[in-house]
Design a protein around this nucleic acid. Structure first.
Lengths: 226, 226, 226, 226
DNA sequence: TATGAATGAGTTTTCATTCAT
DNA sequence: CATGAATGAAAACTCATTCAT
């Protein structure tokens, strides 16, 4: 065996390793997807490993080759879907954008998420509460930054010709709550829900108007409400 | 045993029955309260009958004297707390009131509920989805009437000098969603939450302002936002 | 309800409690006996809870009402049978006895145990090694005291007209080893074993002779060995 | 492929086969050694194939190329280590030796084994009982011949100027038991054990003295052994 | 009615074994 | 041959439910 062959082997091993890692990742994703589907439908406590294996189309034991136990599936789901979602991207990129559109973009982005793929993630908001560590992680890594960003935005805009002097803590939470709550309503109303995929843009426009008009400096006009 | 004694017994039985009914109701409530507490903390699937019996300070078997099984506890909780809550009362009584205050009253009432005792009920919004019958019942008996009422209100107010021409379906759901979502945020943020019992009136005032200004006819003033 | 009735109730409760404790103890013993039988036959690792429940004639779940898990059964067996056996009794009572008979009594006592009920306990000597805590406990509470006692005895008897100048550490362990090893041989030979219940007295007499002659001061006669 | 190449192949195959057989044996030994180590540490039931493969530094599947299943590993271990150990050699070679030294040699040989490499084999004495076939094999091929040989020896020496009139069945078993039991005690006492590798010769001398003096004809008193 | 020990169906989890690479 | 991912049979263990007291 000469240097060349060693090199060759080394290359193959690297390739193999890379390919193995890829399939491992694919398999993990496959299992998590199945778990998400089943948890979402039945709830964590009522879902069984057999269900998940069936949904994934694999054997029971295979799941345990990739995840320590059932709880590990939940925790991994949380990490994958709640903690590290694409929100961060939004928060960072929009900083430089025209802040006139900030609210509209944010609402649109979150509504697309909330009325789309997040429908399956809803149960996580519930399960998260039984895992203090995860709850704290979610709050500190996702929720608080989002709230802070909105508060900043509102705070910045308060002043003549812009926003009224509102309590930004309350308003920011109301906005986020509106999104989360809308997500729940859609799941409750199912077919009766007026939210259709096609109309998300319209919806978020409507809602951002509601909010922006609602925040607008009333001094400018003669009292919106009264 | 003579007639007299029979009469006596009959009398006693009546009394006993009445007292028993009272005790029965009290006992059922005691059990449901314990179940609510445990379900809320652990989730339905993770809660055990032993937990609930312990929380209620009674024996395991006793629970089965009042409820058919564990699921019956959940269903009874749903019925007691979500379906027949005091919302109906509100919906009916406010009809006759000055509709200028409708939004404010509604929001205040629902926020008091959402940030107060409903905190424990949150899990029901998630469990409800596993029970199509209950989901339908909740939607038809609680959610839809509430939505309808708000839609009516908005629809009625749309017009010059009042509300802008908004999509009442979307707005009404956003309002309710805002309440539900706020409930969740409070549970997630825990001690960091800015919602305090004392300030609920202020909060609901702030939010009803947001909504009412947001809905206000922009024609009245020279464009709130732009 | 007067004082008397309270007293009466109190009495009943006490009685009930006592009776309950008794049945609890009986049940625990019943389960441990079954576990001992199955472990002894199959070994700890190969024994199943179903086996034990079957042997005890009870349901699977019942075992878990009395023991935390399978390992707890083993540990409890060890505690009951190896640690707190009647050896201590012997060690203490024989102190005052004529020490000429000490060896004979000790051997007889241990052989009755080893060839009798200890046959089922044999596997414990093996399992004990996987539980460092238990091994230490057994060594410190049972084995070391026994060895010490024998060493003392030998040491005391070393001198003209009594025992030769032997290494009491080695001899004492050889004696105990002889008993344990005999136990194993009986289990290996089964029907071919020459040890019968009836003859234990003869056997222990024979062996105590072997030992006592073997230890005897060679000065007494003109050199036994050399 | 022509005749020549076939021949060549045939030659190579022969070589390969031989080398393969060597490798095969080495591999089998490697696996058995690992199995022994793991079984000894954890017990058969608690040991896993993964453990053994890890200990051997090979893949799981490889084990199954050489042994049918886990039980086959145990059975092979028994065959290799208990059944066909070097005892037979001793039994046969010592026959011709001066029987004056028989006991001493036997004890020394067995003690070296018992306190040395047999420490790892101890568990086999326990596992053997779950395999009646193996137990019988061990008894008939190893234990009984050894017992017989000792019995013969004792029997032969009983008489004036030699051994007392002892029960050779009991004594022979006590001797073997002493060795086995000593093995166990060493494992139980671990660091506290007085048996050190260096002193095995002294120990076996001490014990063979014990036995020989113990068996010596007390009546004669002049020279029991010689 | 109140109770909680007994129960086994149903879960989670492990791990020997197979087999495609 | 070597390997280890895939598998499901079998085991441990849980817990809702029953029922005798």
């Amino acid at each position: 065996m000469n240097e060349y062959s060693l090199l060759l082997i080394s290359k193959m091993t690297d390739n193999k390793k890379k390919r193995k890692d890829q399939t491992t990742e694919a398999r993990k994703r496959q299992i998590l997807d199945a778990a998400l589907s089943v948890f979402s439908r039945k709830g964590f406590g009522e879902a069984t490993i057999v269900d998940i294996a069936g949904e994934a189309g694999i054997g029971i034991g295979t799941i345990y080759n990739y995840y320590k136990n059932k709880e590990d599936l939940l925790v991994s789901l949380l990490a994958r879907n709640l903690i590290s979602d694409n929100l961060n991207q939004l928060l960072n990129t929009t900083v430089v954008q025209d802040d006139k559109q900030f609210m509209e973009l944010l609402l649109e982005d979150r509504f697309i998420f909330a009325l789309g793929k997040a429908q399956e993630l809803l149960f996580l908001f519930f399960e998260i509460q039984r895992y203090p560590k995860l709850r704290r992680q979610y709050v500190s890594q996702v929720l608080s930054p989002l709230i802070d960003r909105i508060e900043q935005y509102i705070h910045m805009k308060i002043g003549p010709g812009n926003f009224r002097n509102v309590n930004e803590k309350v308003i920011s939470r109301a906005l986020i709550g509106m999104i989360i709550g809308t997500m729940i309503l859609k799941r409750l109303e199912l077919r009766d829900s007026p939210y259709k995929k096609s109309g998300i843009k319209t919806i978020s426009k409507e809602l951002s108007n509601l909010v922006l008009y609602g925040l607008a400096d009333k001094g400018q006009c003669n009292s919106a409400h009264r």
